[in-house]
């Protein structure tokens, strides 16, 4: 039985959508089933390696119904099997359960998604901005954030030698 079939039979009510594109095998899971699915994959199916967490803002994407897609790439290091798990969250309060309790690599990856998209991860031990300064107020990789920024760089406080 393939991993997708196992997941389908384990979570029959979740309505998982499995597909394949090139060599990427993908499973789309509703946000409420994400945590049990990831825990099942880590615990029972041996997907012990979380390679990647990232997000996509579908604000300007043609035909998209949800605002944010969050992507997890998990690998079974014994068999080399790789699966892309995807879920969707929406405004006004995009929150997902943190995967930190399963994979420690989720720590900084989730912090980056929070920093860039404003998607919160409940249960994350230290959800702070990581790449932008703490006082930064926007989420730069959202599609409604302009490429040139909103003047943050222009108005950045400058300390001169005289007043330091």
């Amino acid at each position: 039985m393939s991993t997708e079939e196992t997941l389908q039979s384990k979570f029959p009510a979740a309505g998982l959508k499995c597909s394949q594109f090139r060599d990427n095998r993908r499973v789309v899971v509703p946000a409420e089933s994400l945590q049990p699915l990831l825990a099942f994959m880590k615990g029972d199916l041996g997907f012990d390696f979380l390679a990647e967490i990232t997000a996509v803002d579908y604000l300007e994407y043609e035909g998209a119904t949800d605002r944010f897609g969050v992507v997890y790439v998990v690998v079974n290091t014994k068999t080399g099997e790789r699966l892309v798990i995807k879920t969707f969250v929406n405004d006004p309060d995009p929150v997902l359960p943190s995967a930190y309790s399963l994979w420690k690599s989720a720590d900084w990856l989730e912090r980056e998604v929070y920093d860039m998209f404003g998607i919160k991860f409940s249960g994350h031990p230290d959800l702070r901005r990581i790449l932008t300064p703490d006082e930064f107020s926007a989420y730069p990789l959202r599609k409604d954030y302009p490429l040139k920024g909103r003047g943050e760089r222009h108005n950045f406080p400058v300390i001169t030698r005289a007043d330091s």
Binding site: F21, N24, V71
Partner: peptide, 18 residues
């Protein structure tokens, strides 16, 4: 209109692009 994750073994480790 698709999405892909592809990774290569860079000198430093897994370098992937989504």
């Amino acid at each position: 209109k698709e999405e892909i994750y592809a990774a290569t073994e860079s000198p430093n480790g897994e370098l992937g692009y989504y």
